[in-house]
Each structure stands twice: as structure tokens, then as C-alpha cells.
Nucleic acid binder design. Structure first.
Lengths: 198, 198
DNA sequence: ACCTGAACACCGTTCAAGT
DNA sequence: ACCTGAACACCGTTCAAGT
């Protein structure tokens, strides 16, 4: 009934709360860089010099913490898709963007699995970011398909799955890092239309 | 010095030990089918009605347990490669075998990651099985390359990585099971030589 | 409004003590 | 020779008690 009794703008958080949030995020960035997406939340709270409950207050689950860590990167990649759409031929733009996505998905150990698991779980804070990625990639994909450079039966979800799978390969077996670009080309070549006389 | 003081043939294990081993294996098959390769070892020992130390005595680590569970399947797949080599044209034989491998790698939740991690870890009991798989696949691959059906720059390790990656996709996102065959074809098409006029 | 840390129910791994 | 389970050092998650 009465919206007027309180200002619509939410109160700014207490400065100590804000500082704690920042510290957790900083500690998380460190820990996740070292130990991957499965880094111990207890350890993160310890590094941040903060009670374990405080971590949970600011980030109700692991995905929320990862989302905060990754949101910037996803936003950048989405912009990048639109930038590439303008400047490069459709097929090259798509390949370049997918490549950059695979590098992003490989930013942290375990991240490809985390992102892929997001498909099952609409409640995950990462779900929206991954949807954004699929849409950004989908626009480049459609353009490449219209120009005839990519098979018409490739869906955005296929692209998302294959890009994550490529990241996962080097995530699980760092030995294969040297074959990463080669594997990338093999997979992308599979998306081209079969030759006329094939 | 003296080999003659003891018989060369190792003593048969105590019958109770043998029975415990069997029980653990049976319980493990159940638990892993339900919970995947990361199933709780404690839970497995409990189901087997056996002390936790007994599980460790028979299987010093998780991979040893999984190897016992999977050895049969790997052996069968290796045979299958040689059988296919005789009866089908090289390119078809390869595709069929890789497809069957992806089904095997998807037998348990988490298995694709377990298999892939094996590449880093020569001490893992699964290492040998995976090497066998790469060699079996490698023979089919070479034949398909000689017949001109597959690019010459595809290595057995590429095949292994891509097949596991395909299994991983549906492992992580069961939603994509319906696209499994489609993704399989996309990836396999990437292994074909570029068309002459490409 | 926010923070803390004990409490709970789990892990994997080791190893002294038993038979 | 083999088995058991307590002990240790960890988890994630919740929540009463504090400020």
C-alpha cells in the first residue's frame, strides 16, 4: 500500500559490509585462480579475514561468488561479439569469437564444467550470463549461416557445448594445451557445410 | 638369491579376503552407477558391509576401484576395434568405434573427466586402459587416413580427447542427450579432409 | 543490520589394535 | 594375513548469540 513511507532507492549498504564483500571477492579471486572453481569456501573466508557466515551472507552459494568474479568478463565478451560482427566477414568473426570464448571458459580450472552445469540449473546466478553468451554467439552464428559459411543445422547450444568442451579438454589435461588450437580448428571445420561434391 | 625356498606361484588369497573384495566391487558398481565416479568410498565400504580399511587394502585409491569396474569394458572395446577393422570400410569403422567409445565413456557420471585426467597421471591404474584405447583407436585412425577419409594431421590423442569431450557434454548437461548424435556427426565431419575446391 | 564461529553431518586417508 | 574403526584434518551449510 504505502510506498511513500520509505524511499524507493534502497539504502546503501553499511560501509563495513561493503568492505567485507570486497575482501571476500578479492580473496576468492586469489583462491579460485590457485585452486579452481572448487576452491574451499572456508579457505576463502579465512583469506578474507572474515567469518564463514559473512561469506554466505554476501554470496548464498558458490555460483553467486563465481558470477561476481566473472560478470565483467562475460559482459566484455558479449560486446566483443557485436564489435566483431561489424568488422570481420561472418565466418571469421564467428571463429574469432568462439576462440576468445574458449579462452575465457578456461580462465579458471573447473570453469568449463561449472558453465556447462549451468544449463540444468536456471536458478544459478551464472545461468543468465551463459544465456547472454549463447545469444551473443547465436547472432554471429546466424550471420555466418546466412552467408553460407556454416551448416544450417548448428544451433547456438551446439556452439556453446562445443566451445566449452574444447576448454574442458585443456582444463582436464594441461598436456594438451599445445594441441588446443589444432583441436579448435578441427571442431570449427566440422561446422562448415559439406562440399558440393562431397 | 633363493627363489626355490618358496613356490613361484603366489598363494591364493584367503577365501574371506576374496569374498570381501567381491563385495566391495559389487557395492562400488551400485554406488558408482547411482552417484558417479566421485561416489563416497565410505558409502561403498558401508554398502559392502566391510571396514573402510578393507576397501583401501584391496583398492589403494579410487582409480584402482574404477579400473576393476571398467577393465572388462575396455578390453571389449579394444577387441571391437579389431573386429570393425576387418568388416567395414575404414572411415565407417572408425566412426562406429568412436561412437561406441563415447557411449562407454558415458557409462558413469564423471567418467569422461576421470579418463581425461588419466593423461596427466601415469601412476593411475586407468592409465594403461586409456593407452590401450588410444592404440586401438589409433589403428582404425591410421587405416582411415590411408584411405583418404580422414585428415592426416589428426593424432590418436586428438581422437581420444574429442571422444571424451563429446561424452562430457552429455555428462554435464543431460539436457543435451538429444543432440548427442548430432554433435558427434559435427565433430567427426571436422576430421574429414577439406574438399578439393574448398 | 551485520558479523562470528560453534555445531552438524559429511568427506579421504592412515594406522594401532585386534583376530 | 587380514580386518576394524577410531583418529586426523579437512569439507559445505546453518544458525544462535553477539554488536
Amino acid at each position: 500500500m504505502s510506498i511513500e513511507s520509505r524511499p524507493v532507492t534502497p539504502r546503501a549498504p553499511r560501509t563495513d559490509a561493503q568492505r567485507n564483500r570486497d575482501r571476500v571477492l578479492e580473496a576468492a579471486a586469489q583462491a579460485v585462480a590457485e585452486q579452481g572453481t572448487l576452491a574451499s569456501l572456508r579457505d576463502i573466508a579465512r583469506r578474507a579475514g572474515v567469518g564463514l557466515g559473512t561469506l554466505y551472507r554476501h554470496f548464498p552459494n558458490r555460483d553467486a561468488l563465481l558470477e561476481a568474479l566473472l560478470h565483467q568478463r562475460f559482459a566484455h565478451l558479449a560486446q566483443r561479439a557485436d564489435a566483431l560482427a561489424g568488422t570481420a566477414p561472418p565466418e571469421r568473426a564467428l571463429a574469432e569469437w568462439v576462440y576468445e570464448f574458449t579462452l575465457g571458459a578456461g580462465a579458471y580450472q573447473g570453469l568449463p564444467s561449472t558453465l556447462m552445469a549451468t544449463l540444468n540449473d536456471p536458478e544459478s546466478p551464472l545461468h543468465a550470463d551463459c544465456l547472454t553468451m549463447r545469444q551473443a554467439g547465436g547472432r554471429l552464428l546466424e550471420a555466418a549461416q546466412e552467408s553460407g559459411g556454416i551448416r544450417s543445422d548448428v544451433a547456438p547450444i551446439d556452439l556453446f557445448a562445443l566451445a566449452n568442451a574444447l576448454s574442458w579438454i585443456t582444463d582436464q589435461a594441461p598436456t594438451l594445451t599445445e594441441r588446443r588450437d589444432h583441436l579448435f580448428r578441427l571442431v570449427m571445420d566440422g561446422l562448415k557445410p559439406p562440399s558440393d561434391q562431397g
